[in-house]
Design a protein around this nucleic acid. Structure first.
Lengths: 104, 104
DNA sequence: CGATTCGCTTCAATATCTGAAGCGATATAA
DNA sequence: TTATATCGCTTCAGATATTGAAGCGAATCG
């Protein structure tokens, strides 16, 4: 196990910072915010983050089709806060948004 | 271009934190510290970080076979410092070392 | 001299990711 | 009621990224 397993997955950090920023997000909105992620990969990323207890599902009221949303656990929130300086630096120095609509 | 292009590459963050920690490293030592990176990928990662002016080569005295070492640019050092909180959290909460000798 | 070490590059096998299609369940419209 | 749209996914084939062994030219070591 290594840094790589958390940090070396293509979308892990993006998903954590995105959920952290919004406090709570459903599958669809995450997918739309990260336009180049495939649903399969997003699903796998979320499952992996749930296993690490960084993200968890919360039941949601209202639309019955969307039964749950994703939010950060206590632990995940700490991770999110620890990522903020890096996220900020990346945004400032490389015009990098969490939403990466363009291509590399 | 997006967060993903810097953060979504398998070894980018590991390489930056590793060089940052040692101030200066040659290709071989980096490779040996990250045992599961292939020389091809390490080479590509370093080139990409050079293009972004996060890493640069410095000439080295002594062994003539190894003409240069890699170090962080001014900008790269800022990035490194901004990554420290996250790196620290990951180490504390997931027993994650920069050197990931084991497997996931 | 020959053997070893250095920083890579090449290449085939494998792992990972994409994007379109589709599914069961619910919702919304006619 | 029926038809259609939307929700969170899953499946799968094709594209892309990574691995690991092999090898190369140059320099060092013995």
């Amino acid at each position: 196990m290594g840094l790589v397993d958390v940090v070396g997955k293509k979308w892990g950090i993006c998903v954590v910072t995105l959920i952290g920023h919004h406090r709570q997000l459903r599958f669809g909105p995450i997918q739309r915010s990260l336009p180049r992620v495939s649903p399969a990969t997003l699903s796998a990323t979320l499952r992996s983050l749930e296993q690490r207890e960084i993200v968890c599902k919360v039941p949601i009221s209202g639309d019955g089709r969307a039964s749950a949303a994703y939010t950060l656990t206590e632990s995940g929130s700490e991770l999110y806060r620890s990522m903020l300086p890096m996220a900020k630096w990346l945004r400032r120095n490389h015009n990098l948004e969490i939403h990466s609509k363009g291509r590399s």
